[in-house]
């Protein structure tokens, strides 16, 4: 019973909160550029509208293009649900594992990249090739960072990591975790196709990565892909929030109000991280594609130094 309740809560939180960070990032960017910007909740309306539309599909495509949006959505939702929005009602048998988390996201990406190639357009192929390349380059940084986080918890299971981080109090005071946090921010930017790796607002096909892959999708397909991307971003932000900002100000409040307050605190953390991403996005420019390896190298170095900082004292 508790398990089912927990999963329902997780899925509901993910579905409801996922489009929020994107709205916040866009708002921050708009304000920095002295524009008013779209309302915070615009993406919710867009998604609803797109979901009501039927899809236009290229005559060169196959089942891959039509299946991919659903796979991307389902895997992103699963990964998002794996990241606890609140640890208050965590069930005993929790199947979450950090390595699994990233590979579930990779499964969604596999189909996304495939669907980019399906229409036989050069733009789709370009986006797919770039996405495959970028995701491969940041992979080592991600996994080493994961190992660093796991070293503190002596486990890669998500509840284990969370309880270890909660026990640390303020994890960012650990130099090791501080470095890993910076690495994960870079990974997040690359994985969610944000500036400086990709520009989500671009209208020029030649510079697109994520947008080029979904160029052939429309209507409900596009809605699911956008929603999937939002869920993926939510999942990664939730990972950052859970691991690096585990502080729960309402720990003393018991029962249902406590759970609700913890959820609110979680949403605030998400918003804070979105502000950070938005600030990075407003302050930097998109990198040349061949400079992305530099970024990946820096992320890897940060992760590796993070592990090193943990290993040096000899425990």
């Amino acid at each position: 019973m508790k398990t089912i309740l927990y999963w329902l809560l997780q899925v509901a939180a993910a579905l409801l909160l996922a489009p929020l960070p994107i709205g916040a990032i866009r708002k921050v960017k708009a304000l920095v550029q002295k524009r008013k910007g779209a309302p915070l909740l615009q993406l919710y309306r867009d998604l609803l509208k797109l979901l009501r539309k039927s899809a236009v599909v290229s005559d060169a495509t196959s089942w891959v293009l039509r299946a991919a949006p659903f796979v991307v959505f389902a895997t992103s939702l699963f990964a998002a649900a794996m990241m606890p929005a609140t640890v208050r009602v965590l069930p005993d048998a929790f199947p979450g594992d950090l390595i699994l988390f990233f590979f579930v996201l990779a499964l969604g990406r596999f189909f996304l990249v495939l669907s980019g190639m399906d229409a036989g357009s050069s733009f789709g192929g370009m986006g797919s090739a770039r996405e495959a390349m970028i995701s491969a380059l940041v992979e080592p940084a991600m996994l080493v960072g994961l190992f660093a986080v796991g070293l503190f918890a002596k486990t890669t299971s998500i509840p284990g990591v969370l309880s270890a981080m909660t026990a640390l109090g303020f994890p960012l005071l650990q130099p090791s975790l501080l470095l890993v946090f910076l690495a994960f921010v870079l990974v997040l930017l690359a994985e969610t196709s944000r500036i400086p790796v990709d520009d989500p607002a671009t209208h020029l096909e030649l510079t697109m990565v994520h947008e080029a892959m979904v160029l052939e999708d429309s209507g409900r397909h596009l809605a699911l892909l956008e929603y999937g991307a939002a869920l993926k971003q939510y999942a990664l932000l939730a990972l950052l929030a859970d691991v690096f900002l585990p502080y729960d100000p309402f720990a003393a409040v018991p029962g249902v109000p406590g759970v609700l307050l913890a959820l609110v605190a979680f949403a605030v953390k998400l918003l804070f991280l979105s502000l950070l991403v938005g600030a990075v996005e407003a302050a930097t420019v998109k990198l040349r594609f061949f400079s992305v390896p530099n970024l990946a190298a820096i992320a890897f170095i940060l992760s590796f130094l993070g592990v090193l900082q943990f290993l040096i004292p000899g425990r």
């Binding site: 979901l51 009501r52 539309k53 039927s54 899809a55 236009v56 599909v57 290229s58 005559d59 060169a60 039509r66 229409a119 036989g120 357009s121 733009f123 160029l215 052939e216 209507g219 409900r220």
Partner: peptide, 12 residues
Amino acid sequence: GGRFLVRRYGTW
């Protein structure tokens, strides 16, 4: 969104 209708068209 209602029934799954798909309109065929060329690649962009």
